[in-house]
Design a protein around this nucleic acid. Structure first.
Lengths: 123, 123
DNA sequence: ATACCTGCAAATTATTTGCAATATA
DNA sequence: TATATTGCAAATAATTTGCAGGTAT
C-alpha cells in the first residue's frame, strides 16, 4: 500500500474520535480539512484500512457500516431509542453490571468470526 | 396487525429453516408456494415480524440483513471464508470450546441492545 | 365499511466501480 | 517511469415507499 494524504487523513479521523462514525460522517469530517476529497475515496480507504486491520467495523441494525478506531477488545451497547453506541470495556458483561451504568439491556448479540471446519485449510 | 396469508407464509419459512436467510432467499422460497408474492411484501413483513419480536435479525459484514427464526438465546459463528453461519447454543463461548467444534475463532463481536441513560424513560 | 395489506414499479440509500488524471516510490 | 491512488460520475445492490386495488375484521 502506497502512502496517500487522503488515507492518512481518514485514518486519523477514525482513530481520533470516540463515537462510531459511518462513512458519510467520516466524509463530512474529512471535507472540513481536505475540501475536495471524494466520497469514493473515503469508502475505498475505509475498506482498505478495515481489511488491513488498522481500524475495525461494527455492523448495526441501521444497515450502515460503522467504523471503530479502537482495536482493543471491547463490546458495544447500542441504544434502540437514540442509536447511540457506547463502548464497554473491562469485561462488563452481565445485564446487572450494565444496569449499574444506567443501561437497561433487553437483548444481546454475540458473533464470532473465523474459519469453519470446511474452510480450515484455506488461507 | 391483521392476518394475511403472505405474512403467515413468510413467518413459516423463517421459522422452518435452520440457516439464516436474507430477504431475497426468503422471497425465493415464498415464490415457490405463493407464485406471485412480491419482494416488497416480503421486506415489509420481515420488518414487521422483527419489530414485533416474532423473528430475530442478524447483522453481518456482508451488509445484508439475515433473519433467524430461533428466538432462544444463542450466539453465532460466521466463517469469514464461506460466509456460513453456525448457531452456538449452550453457552459455548471460549475460543477453546469453539476450537473443539472445529471452528477457529479470530475475532468476536458482542453487541448489547437496550435503552441508554438518556432514553431510560422513553417507551 | 374501514383500514390494513398486497403487487407493482419507481424511489431511496448505502456502497462500489470505471476512467482519465495525478501523485508516490 | 510504473503503477497505486484520486475525483468524478455513473452503476449496483439492498431496502423502502407511493399508489390503486384487494382483503380481513
Amino acid at each position: 500500500m502506497r502512502y496517500s494524504r487522503q488515507r492518512e487523513l481518514i485514518y486519523n479521523i477514525v482513530k481520533g474520535r470516540c463515537d462510531h462514525p459511518t462513512a458519510d460522517m467520516i466524509y463530512a469530517s474529512a471535507r472540513e480539512i481536505e475540501s475536495n476529497i471524494s466520497l469514493g475515496t473515503v469508502y475505498r480507504n475505509l475498506k482498505a484500512l478495515a481489511e488491513s486491520k488498522e481500524i475495525d467495523t461494527l455492523e448495526t441494525v441501521d444497515n450502515r457500516l460503522h467504523y471503530d478506531g479502537n482495536l482493543t477488545a471491547h463490546s458495544h451497547f447500542i441504544c434502540v431509542n437514540c442509536g447511540n453506541i457506547i463502548d464497554l470495556f473491562n469485561e462488563i458483561k452481565t445485564p446487572n453490571e450494565l444496569g449499574d451504568m444506567g443501561l437497561s439491556v433487553t437483548q444481546s448479540k454475540c458473533v464470532y468470526y473465523g474459519n469453519c471446519n470446511d474452510c480450515k485449510d484455506i488461507k
